[in-house]
């Protein structure tokens, strides 16, 4: 192995070959086996490789592994709160039965998570705009918008109850 690169993925510090990967997407999928992040176009168009980098969405195909630095990478595999406890957005996607082929579902979910961390009560227009970063060829957009609104409502109901 050449130089070692340390990178925090889903709360674990991983050591990988510093020059070994074309982009973060290849590192995640081919080295770390985190295949929930999909490779759909590698040209920043489809959004299927969306991950969270320090709470913001980023495209793993557009990031050099060494540029992550001390940033925290979160993939879909690291999102759930525990083995049997889904994140509120994942639960909302199940409640609204959003997915079909499921290829873009992780990217839609993470896009929604980032949005809700930034804005607690996004309206449908903002949800739509953000979800536009992820192409869904099955056409599940309206269900996804409904799921994100549901997750937002659930979160605000919970915080209101506290």
């Amino acid at each position: 192995m050449n130089q070692v690169l340390r990178i925090a993925v889903n709360g674990t510090l991983r050591e990988v070959d510093a020059g070994g990967f074309e982009h973060l997407l290849e590192l995640l999928r081919e080295e770390l086996g985190l295949t929930g992040t999909k490779s759909g176009c590698e040209s920043r168009s489809c959004g299927a490789c969306t991950i969270l980098l320090d709470d913001s969405t980023a495209l793993a195909c557009a990031i050099r592994p060494e540029s992550v630095g001390g940033g925290r990478v979160l993939t879909i595999e690291g999102l759930a709160d525990g083995p049997d406890v889904l994140h509120a957005v994942q639960q909302a996607f199940l409640d609204e039965q959003v997915g079909q082929c499921g290829w873009c579902t992780p990217a839609q979910v993470l896009t929604a998570v980032a949005l809700l961390r930034e804005v607690t009560d996004p309206g449908p227009d903002l949800i739509r705009r953000r979800l536009s970063a992820v192409l869904c060829r099955c056409g599940t957009y309206e269900r996804a918008v409904a799921a994100v609104a549901r997750a937002a409502a659930t979160a605000s109901a919970r915080s209101g109850a506290e």
Partner: peptide, 21 residues
Amino acid sequence: VPRIDLPSKVTGAAVFTSDVR
């Protein structure tokens, strides 16, 4: 009935051919 495939699709656990290792 709810779709059987969705729980694994929202967690990223669903294996597509691309994901076979």
